[in-house]
């Protein structure tokens, strides 16, 4: 299923205002209203509508654990850490912006200098019990490293449901098969961004 249906926000033009008469106040008017309502058969219209749906048997139930609804690319569920396509190394450069911007203080990042004197993430965890899934971390990330995935089944028996760096990182075999999904959602560059870029006028 493609994502177009999620972008279609156009409601139909069939909406119209219902014309409601004033309520009658005198006895005769009320009596007329009762007669009209009793014999117009509105009750039977209601009965027919539900019976029609029963006969048609057009069931809309999603049997959840077996079937799942497709979710949109901008859905903000449990975070993922992406790898670089070229070298399969981690995209995260350990800048710590996500930790800074996190408004519920649920991201903890520790870095160190490794043997190649490069900055390396030594510890990275997200407390999902606190995370409000606002998406600021994905938006602020300069490398598109931390993103939101579509994994929403994160029930846990404790509130401090941590995810560690290794859990979020795209596994290497997935990289080998080249099936890492590029993030189209929050904070990502929109498609065809190049065409919309305007050059900064240097004359200033």
């Amino acid at each position: 299923m493609n994502n177009e249906q999620f972008n279609d926000r156009n409601v139909s033009n069939d909406y119209f205002l219902v014309d409601i008469e004033d309520y009658p106040t005198d006895g005769w008017g009320k009596f007329k209203r009762v007669i009209k309502r009793s014999f117009r058969g509105e009750l039977f219209v209601g009965l027919w509508v539900v019976l029609r749906e029963m006969i048609r048997f057009d069931i809309h139930t999603v049997k959840y654990p077996e079937e799942k609804m497709p979710i949109g690319p901008r859905y903000r569920a449990v975070h993922e850490m992406k790898r670089l396509w070229e070298s399969d190394t981690e995209r995260c450069i350990g800048c710590g912006l996500c930790e800074k911007i996190c408004i519920s203080n649920c991201i903890r990042i520790d870095t160190k200098i490794d043997e190649n004197s490069r900055k390396e993430v030594s510890e990275y965890s997200i407390n999902l019990g606190r995370c409000i899934f606002c998406g600021y971390c994905a938006e602020v990330c300069p490398e598109l490293a931390i993103t939101h995935g579509g994994e929403y089944e994160n029930a846990s028996d404790q509130r401090e449901h941590f995810v560690m760096y290794e859990d979020m990182l795209t596994p290497l075999d997935k990289m080998k098969a080249a099936t890492q999904l590029e993030f189209e959602g929050f904070g990502a560059i929109t498609p065809h961004e190049d065409e919309r870029v305007k050059k900064t006028p240097l004359a200033y």
Partner: peptide, 13 residues
């Protein structure tokens, strides 16, 4: 079941 079918649901399954 009947209520579910009339409301396009499946009911207990």
């Amino acid at each position: 079941k009947v209520l579910a079918f009339m409301q396009r649901r499946l009911g207990p399954m």
